[in-house]
Simulated scan of single mutants.
Amino acid sequence: MDRFDAMTVFVRVVEAGSLSAAARVGPQSLTSVSRHIAALEERLGTQLLRRTTRHLALTDEGRLFYERAKAILGEMEELEGALSAGRDEPSGRLRVAAPGLIGRYRIAPLLPRFLARYPSVDVDLVLVDRTVDLVEENIHLAVRLGRQPDSSLVARKLAEVHMLTCAAPVYLKRRGTPKSPGDLRDHDCLTFSDTAGAIEWRFRSSSTQVSVRVTGRIWANSLYAVVAAAIEGGGIVRVPSWQVAHEIAAGRLRTLLDAYRPPPTPVYAVFDHARRSSPKVRTFVDYLVDQWAGSDLETVTSR
């Protein structure tokens, strides 16, 4: 069995929705498609598809294999295109994940110029306020805030952003204004993270870092949600400056604990080592670095 051919057939079956539909797209015989899938499952030692009389569904292992196989085939297509053209020209579909507002205000406006410069590239911009799995979700690169832990990912710094602690005037009138980070323990803090529960907010006092474990009655995995709750007086929120610039300017939120504001948070482009040589990934990261050179994203929403 040719593994590349079997991988191609498997991806075609998943996207077509059935073995017979994949055979028609091929085009190849239904028997040939079935043999490729059976041989692939035998080689891997696991079931990839669950077949019924009405439809087929991916197993957990099948979904993982599909996402990785699709990424590999896409990279192969891009590489073949670049080599056949005799140059390292970016081409193919590029999937970029980024936090909602930073994607909306600081990436989306840059895309038309990038696409005009590289007409063989298409871009999918996925806006999510969570950490995406690059492999499972077939993301070529992600824009992330904060220091990146040692991992299999390549991280390249793009810019910096300030983290602001703020609350609505109505909340401060009702509950009082915290004077130091420790006072936050007696307040309702609106927490944003991937998983529910108490989290730590870090501040700086002189040259000393201060960490405060905060809790509250509202948790969300969306920055939009916690900011919306803060505006309505739901509690104290701590978010990137670009998330609340308009609300602060309009007086809907007030900054707190400015004397304890921590150093700026770095913004990185992260991608898998396997994509380091991908022309479309490398070119897009270079483009962001050039466009954001020396940038502080504090006023990102005032454009």
Rank of each mutant, 00 (worst) to 15 (best):
G17F: 10
D194M: 06
F65W: 13
F4A: 09
D186M: 00
H273W: 03
S205H: 15
V9W: 05
Y118I: 09
P149C: 01
A22E: 12
A229R: 06
Y66H: 12
L134I: 03
D286T: 15
V267Y: 08
A16W: 15
D124P: 02
A293Y: 12
A39S: 09
S91K: 00
Y268M: 05
D5S: 12
R252N: 12
L257R: 03
V135S: 03
S302G: 00
A155N: 01
R147D: 15
R117M: 12
V267W: 05
V9S: 15
Q148F: 09
R254A: 07
A116G: 08
R156M: 07
R156V: 09
A245F: 06
H187C: 07
H55C: 07
R147A: 10
A274H: 07
S295W: 11
W242G: 04
E298R: 08
E15C: 07
T191P: 08
R261S: 13
L44K: 13
P90Y: 07
R51P: 11
I218K: 05
R50W: 07
A167V: 13
P178A: 14
L190N: 04
V212Y: 00
V244G: 02
V135L: 00
R51C: 03
V9N: 07
I107Q: 04
P264W: 11
R93E: 15
A21D: 13
V11S: 02
V244I: 14
F203E: 04
I72A: 13
G234S: 06
S84A: 14
L115D: 15
E160S: 14
V121K: 03
R35N: 11
R35S: 08
Q47T: 14
A245P: 02
G100C: 10
A6T: 01
Q209C: 01
I199T: 14
R185P: 03
I139L: 00
L190A: 08
Q28L: 05
E232Q: 14
T283N: 05
E298K: 02
V237A: 14
Y105F: 14
Y287W: 15
V121A: 02
L94M: 04
V267R: 01
P169N: 03
M1T: 13
A225F: 09
I248E: 04
L223K: 04
D296N: 13
R130P: 05
D150I: 04
V239E: 11
S29W: 05
P90I: 07
H140K: 09
L111Q: 12
A82K: 01
L115N: 11
R12H: 06
P178I: 10
Q209M: 11
F271Q: 02
G45S: 09
S206C: 12
A142R: 00
G233V: 00
A293N: 09
G86A: 14
S302C: 03
G235Q: 11
T52K: 02
A23V: 09
N138I: 01
H55D: 14
F284R: 10
F4T: 11
V123D: 04
L125I: 04
P169F: 02
D124F: 13
L158T: 05
F10M: 07
